[in-house]
Simulated scan of single mutants.
Amino acid sequence: MTAKVLKVKHCRTHDGKPLASIDGLPGDMADLQPAQLRAYAAVMQRIADDCEARPMGPRTYRELSVKYTVDA
């Protein structure tokens, strides 16, 4: 398996809800084996958890760019 980096910008929607903008996902019709799918799923879960854990208040909110590695 080859490591793949996903670049994620943690931000928020126009109404203040958590949002993750992700660059580096496989394109249309990606061929992925089950182990690769599980690796992407694990990283996506981590991104979702990190996104929800970020402060969204008017005084505490800041955009954050993070790189996540997928061992797929």
Rank of each mutant, 00 (worst) to 15 (best):
5 V>S: 13
30 A>K: 07
55 P>F: 02
57 G>A: 11
37 L>Y: 09
51 C>I: 01
1 M>K: 06
15 D>T: 14
64 L>H: 13
8 V>C: 03
24 G>N: 07
12 R>G: 04
71 D>F: 10
9 K>W: 08
58 P>T: 07
55 P>M: 08
17 K>S: 13
54 R>T: 06
21 S>W: 08
54 R>F: 05
15 D>H: 11
28 D>R: 03
2 T>M: 13
32 L>H: 03
51 C>D: 06
23 D>N: 11
5 V>H: 04
44 M>D: 01
66 V>E: 13
2 T>E: 14
44 M>K: 03
36 Q>Y: 01
27 G>K: 05
4 K>E: 07
14 H>Y: 07
40 Y>D: 00
40 Y>R: 03
24 G>K: 09
51 C>K: 02
15 D>L: 11
55 P>C: 06
50 D>I: 06
43 V>G: 03
18 P>L: 08
50 D>A: 14
47 I>R: 00
48 A>F: 02
32 L>A: 12
8 V>Y: 00
20 A>N: 04
37 L>F: 07
49 D>N: 08
2 T>N: 14
52 E>Q: 14
20 A>M: 06
27 G>R: 06
38 R>D: 13
25 L>E: 06
28 D>A: 13
7 K>R: 15
65 S>C: 11
21 S>K: 15
16 G>Q: 10
6 L>R: 04
32 L>Q: 12
46 R>M: 12
61 Y>G: 02
55 P>G: 14
13 T>S: 15
45 Q>G: 07
1 M>Y: 02
49 D>C: 02
43 V>A: 06
60 T>C: 09
45 Q>F: 02
25 L>K: 11
7 K>T: 15
56 M>Q: 15
53 A>E: 07
68 Y>T: 00
58 P>Q: 11
32 L>F: 09
5 V>L: 11
26 P>F: 03
32 L>G: 07
72 A>Q: 00
43 V>M: 10
2 T>S: 15
70 V>K: 01
48 A>H: 06
46 R>I: 08
18 P>V: 10
60 T>M: 10
72 A>L: 02
70 V>D: 00
6 L>H: 01
68 Y>H: 04
38 R>V: 11
6 L>Q: 04
14 H>I: 09
23 D>Y: 03
47 I>W: 00
7 K>C: 07
69 T>F: 06
32 L>P: 02
37 L>P: 01
2 T>A: 13
61 Y>I: 04
45 Q>T: 09
42 A>Y: 04
63 E>N: 09
9 K>Y: 02
44 M>F: 07
12 R>I: 08
36 Q>N: 08
64 L>Y: 09
3 A>D: 07
45 Q>Y: 04
71 D>G: 06
29 M>Y: 13
4 K>P: 00
23 D>W: 03
32 L>S: 12
17 K>Y: 05
39 A>T: 01
20 A>G: 00
1 M>L: 05
14 H>K: 14
40 Y>P: 00
27 G>Q: 05
22 I>F: 03
